[in-house]
């Protein structure tokens, strides 16, 4: 698991108060890939905020994750164009294939799943994005194939 030292991030924000909570959480997530419990506790101590409050704020926003990202981070677009082209079925296919819900990471640490509102590739709808690479015109079959190829890649690289 990736654990980063939160202190340097907090130092960058200097004397910033509780109104800096969200930028701080964003910085932590950028560095760490997700928000670890340890990081949230430390941010709370730094800002003088109860951890329940930090967790409440963080869970309010879709952008924050609470599990480390998988080796393959799958973003399923649920924007309007993708929706019309059947992205609900695509999302279901990913969930069933990986047995995880959006926001979660598979136990083997290989896959994580995120739902995004629109990734600005409406011409490719329905589209999903794996580690920044776009896959166009997704179907249930294509999802299965893509996941198998990721698994193969992981196996080859040990």
């Amino acid at each position: 698991m990736i654990q980063v030292d939160v202190e340097p991030i907090l130092n960058e924000f200097g004397d910033a108060g509780r109104d800096a909570l969200i930028p701080i959480l964003q910085a932590v997530q950028e560095r760490q890939g997700y928000l670890s419990r340890e990081a949230m506790i430390e941010v709370g101590q730094h800002l003088g905020l109860p951890v329940s409050k930090i967790y409440g704020v963080a869970t309010f926003y879709n952008q924050f994750r609470f599990q480390p990202q998988g080796k393959f981070h799958i973003q399923v677009c649920r924007g309007t164009a993708c929706h019309v082209k059947g992205s609900a079925r695509v999302l279901d296919a990913v969930r069933q294939a990986l047995k995880i819900e959006p926001g979660q990471t598979s136990r083997d640490g290989l896959f994580s799943l995120e739902v995004v509102a629109c990734i600005g590739a409406c011409g490719l709808a329905p589209v999903i994005c794996v580690n920044g690479e776009f896959y166009a015109g997704m179907t249930t079959e294509k999802v299965d194939k893509l996941i198998r190829s990721c698994q193969r890649k992981a196996a080859e690289n040990g």
């Binding site: 949230m40 951890v51 869970t59």
Partner: peptide, 16 residues
């Protein structure tokens, strides 16, 4: 305790 989550998924709960 605080509110956790958003919208129809909002609930009251503890940290984590």
């Amino acid at each position: 305790i605080d509110f956790i989550g958003r919208g129809s998924k909002t609930r009251v709960g503890t940290a984590f």
